[in-house]
Write a protein that binds this DNA or RNA. Structure first.
Lengths: 212, 212
DNA sequence: CTCTCGTTTGAACGATCGTTCAGATCACTT
DNA sequence: AAGTGATCTGAACGATCGTTCAAACGAGAG
């Protein structure tokens, strides 16, 4: 059973929905939920659909998660954790050059949206199905991701490497376009994931007025 | 009652779902459906919710439309017709200069997504709720809109005004970012619609490497 | 083997879903 | 006034929804 409220020292608000990896059925349920919910949406997918896709019975969902709602919240929360972690790791590995730093986070962001395409689609269309408490947590993490882009673009502008007159707007423009790859990418299309990443890096640098 | 299949001379496939404007109840149902479906999604909204928001009874939906499904299809189809029409009109009014032409279609696209925000959100998240036939029609019209952007960017590149190395990718990058305004815009925010449009015009020109 | 406890099943519950339809109501012609 | 066809209502239908729960299962401890 997943902790909806992870106990923490002090009185900090909950920041994650934990899920031990040694619960194979819970993992299978999450994978199945991603599969079917990304096609039909949260309300368009029944608990029986999820259980059938996972090869189990409907009732078991209420043993591992408290409800269908908590399953969705857990799913989205973990997905955003992974996205933010990958982006921060890419930033750590990048050097000082603002162009390299923007290339790094664009690559991480786009790659995640290509590799976890269904999860990304869910995250972009089913936030509205979250109850207020879970929504707050997920939106806060999405804002963290947006602020990473804001900071990288603003730093580049401050150091005179980017010439975008409105750093925040350019950053949002870029993240929106990079997020959208999850909506149009089809495996087997004319561009490989690496080519898609490379082109998004170039266009993103153009969007912030990088002088090469 | 809306024609799901509009009869046409010859054997052309249906291209629109007609709706006479002198049916106030049908119009009210569509407006109500946009209102509630954009918040809770297609499957998260019941026919009773729509009827209540329109101030009528549930059964009347089946008199004006054949089903909840046809109501959604009509709604999305008309919305995309309006988007494409506005974009083509803007292009007709623009002059020859590729930069002016890109500014024109960006303005039309962004303005529509700001003014018809809820309709746009529905169109971007509930295509999956459409049955195959209606989906084909709507996706075809969305492709028309995308091709307008492709053509304007490619023309600019061909005439040496834009220097984007990959016109199609830049065009998709731009449309994705401009479509996303419907997802983050909040009336009363720091930027007015006109300011948002202006900044998207500038960043879009940067993204296609316009040399000013 | 027996006991235990976490895991899993599938039937069952009340609520709500999309849809239907017989009848009421309305605007307008004859 | 009487009739007519379009519009509208609200109860009702069977299906399916999220959720619960008693019972069965399975692996490890004594």
């Amino acid at each position: 059973m997943v902790n909806a409220e992870k106990p923490r020292p002090g009185s900090l608000p909950p920041t994650t929905l934990t899920l031990p990896d040694d619960e194979p059925t819970a993992v299978a349920l999450i994978a199945a939920a991603v599969e079917v919910m990304s096609v039909h949406g949260y309300h368009g997918t029944s608990v029986r659909d999820i259980a059938a896709a996972a090869g189990t019975s409907p009732g078991i969902l209420y043993h591992h998660f408290g409800s269908k709602q908590v399953l969705l919240a857990t799913l989205l929360d973990r997905g955003l954790d992974a996205l933010v972690a990958a982006t921060e790791l890419a930033l750590d590995l990048a050097g000082d050059d603002p162009a390299d730093r923007l290339r790094a986070i664009v690559a991480a962001h786009v790659r995640m949206h290509l590799e976890a395409q269904r999860e990304s689609l869910l995250g972009n269309s089913e936030l509205r199905a979250l109850e207020p408490g879970a929504l707050r947590v997920v939106v806060a993490k999405r804002d963290v991701q947006q602020r990473i882009f804001d900071r990288v673009v603003r730093d580049g502008v401050r150091r005179g490497v980017f010439a975008a007159p409105h750093a925040e707007d350019a950053a949002r423009f870029v993240t929106a376009a990079c997020t959208a790859v999850a909506a149009w990418y089809r495996p087997g299309g004319p561009l490989s994931p690496d080519e898609i990443i490379q082109r998004h890096q170039e266009i993103s640098l153009d969007a912030v007025r990088y002088h090469r």
